[in-house]
Design a protein around this nucleic acid. Structure first.
Lengths: 223, 223
DNA sequence: GCCTGTGAATCCATTCACAGCT
DNA sequence: AGCTGTGAATGGATTCACAGGC
């Protein structure tokens, strides 16, 4: 079962693999709730729309979680994946830019359920500062970001400013000491190399669809 | 320049390529605004965090847009990319599930600016039906979806329901006749094979960050 | 000289196919 | 018999490196 291996230096895990692990956990939660004790790589693959060998290989990067001839114990596998993805602990987030998207994210139930907790919300617009959000947070001025980030041990900074404000937001976050940044704007943000950056441009997939719609040829959907 | 080629059957364009085209267009808009007449593949690559050869190859799938010894004319290139991605026309969207995320999306300026227009908003919760949104739309009951989709020629259906409601939303959309679906829930949705499906799980990148944060090794950020 | 367009080479990820365990 | 774990084979995408045009 080798939970010990989970945290060891993995040889070289492909990035798509770790993205899929998060995907696997979704149907596993359903299966757990439904009371299924075990699941085969084939069944899990179907539920996630991937190849069975892919499932097995992905998991094999982190240890041997399956039972030959049987499959994977749902509960154990889910626990293992959570340990790998570190979703079994609490992560503190802060967010810059309290427009519509920012407000939607701090209220998001999926984030909370997985342990991603917003502990502070900032906005550069003084008219928004002081406003009380539904989640209980109060919008803070960006001037206070450094204090708050270190005091509350913020792990991840989220950017939901305007496109133009994105770089400044990133600079503020890095200066305040966050170790990683999730950028929801379409802006390309430059960041200190000691910090992790992930971009989530919610418009990209839309452009993909538009592209495919213009050249319909009975072709199939994407993953 | 071969704009004629743009719509012709492309030999086999890699999916990552078309995703990057959308990324290229962002800095190109900035360059156009800033008045830069031309841009080299190297400069554009830096602005987008990719390899220069990648930029050239991506563009070469669709024609010859560059001038050797010089680079690409910003204005022309942007026009070409917009034609390829079909961002130079108007797309009609409808949306199911008017929670916080749904409300954020219908107000989203980036969508509007690129021609993605929400023409109808639905919710299964009758308490929300009839509510007037800031963008001018009124929340409709799902019962009316078929009529509205065909009357307004909706191209793309967006799902922002709860995870549990996602499959039903997809079924409603397909039945109503939309040709493509963008699913923002973490649920894996099954769909008729004649329809395009794209998933945008806004929590996935967060789990990526968490994973990397647990094994810091001075490593660099991801694209 | 400079920068594009592109075959060739490399790198990476997915899938196959089967050995090995239960 | 059934299903995992994994080397080998395949398939794609990225990068290199240079020929070709400005």
């Amino acid at each position: 079962m080798a939970v010990s291996e989970i945290m060891s230096e993995s040889p070289k895990v492909p990035k798509p693999t770790i993205e899929r692990l998060a995907i696997y956990s979704r149907p596993l939660e359903d299966l757990l709730e439904a009371g299924s004790p075990v699941v085969s790589s084939e069944r899990l693959a179907i539920l996630c729309g991937v190849n069975p060998a892919q499932v097995r290989k992905d998991l094999a990067y982190f240890g041997e979680f399956g039972i030959r001839g049987l499959g994977y114990e749902v509960k154990e596998l889910l626990k293992a994946i959570r340990a790998i993805l570190a979703t079994d602990r609490r992560w503190s987030l802060c967010i810059l830019g309290m427009g519509n998207l920012g407000r939607a994210l701090v209220e998001n139930e999926n984030f909370k359920r997985r342990g991603y907790i917003f502990v502070a919300a900032f906005d550069a617009d003084n008219r928004k500062v002081g406003e009380r959000l539904a989640c209980g947070l109060t919008i803070e001025p960006v001037a206070g970001i450094k204090d708050i980030v270190s005091k509350l041990h913020v792990d991840i900074g989220v950017i939901t400013t305007s496109q133009k404000g994105a770089q400044r937001a990133a600079d503020l976050l890095i200066d305040a000491g966050v170790r990683s940044v999730l950028n929801f704007t379409p802006a390309q943000v430059r960041i200190s190399s000691s910090c992790f950056l992930e971009n989530e441009d919610i418009g990209l997939k839309l452009e993909n669809l538009a592209y495919h719609l213009t050249r319909i040829r009975g072709a199939r959907a994407t993953k």
